[in-house]
Deep mutational scan, measured.
Amino acid sequence: TRVETATETAWISLVTALHLVLGLSAVLGLLLLRWQFPAHYRRLRHALW
Rank of each mutant, 00 (worst) to 15 (best):
T1F: 13
R2L: 13
R2I: 13
R2C: 10
V3G: 01
V3L: 12
V3N: 00
E4H: 10
E4P: 05
E4N: 11
T5H: 01
A6H: 07
T7E: 05
T7Q: 13
T7C: 03
E8F: 01
T9G: 11
T9P: 13
T9E: 11
W11E: 00
W11I: 06
W11A: 00
I12W: 03
S13I: 10
S13L: 10
L14F: 00
L14T: 04
L14V: 12
L14G: 01
V15W: 02
V15D: 01
V15E: 00
V15P: 00
V15F: 03
T16M: 07
A17V: 11
A17H: 03
A17W: 04
A17T: 08
L18F: 10
L18V: 05
L18A: 04
L18S: 02
H19V: 00
H19T: 02
L20C: 12
L20D: 03
V21I: 12
V21A: 11
V21L: 10
G23M: 13
G23I: 14
L24S: 04
S25T: 14
S25N: 10
S25R: 02
S25Q: 08
S25C: 12
A26M: 09
A26T: 09
A26R: 06
V27S: 09
V27P: 04
L28H: 04
L28F: 09
L28P: 03
L28Q: 02
L28D: 04
G29L: 14
G29W: 07
L30H: 07
L30Y: 07
L31P: 06
L31T: 13
R34D: 00
R34K: 15
W35N: 15
F37H: 08
F37I: 09
P38M: 15
A39M: 15
A39T: 15
A39S: 14
A39W: 09
H40Q: 14
H40N: 08
H40D: 05
H40W: 08
Y41H: 07
Y41W: 13
Y41C: 15
R42F: 07
R42K: 11
R42S: 14
R42N: 12
R43V: 09
R43W: 08
R43T: 14
L44T: 07
L44V: 13
L44P: 02
R45Q: 09
R45T: 08
H46N: 14
H46M: 04
H46A: 05
H46D: 12
H46I: 07
H46L: 07
A47V: 09
A47M: 05
A47Y: 11
A47E: 06
A47S: 11
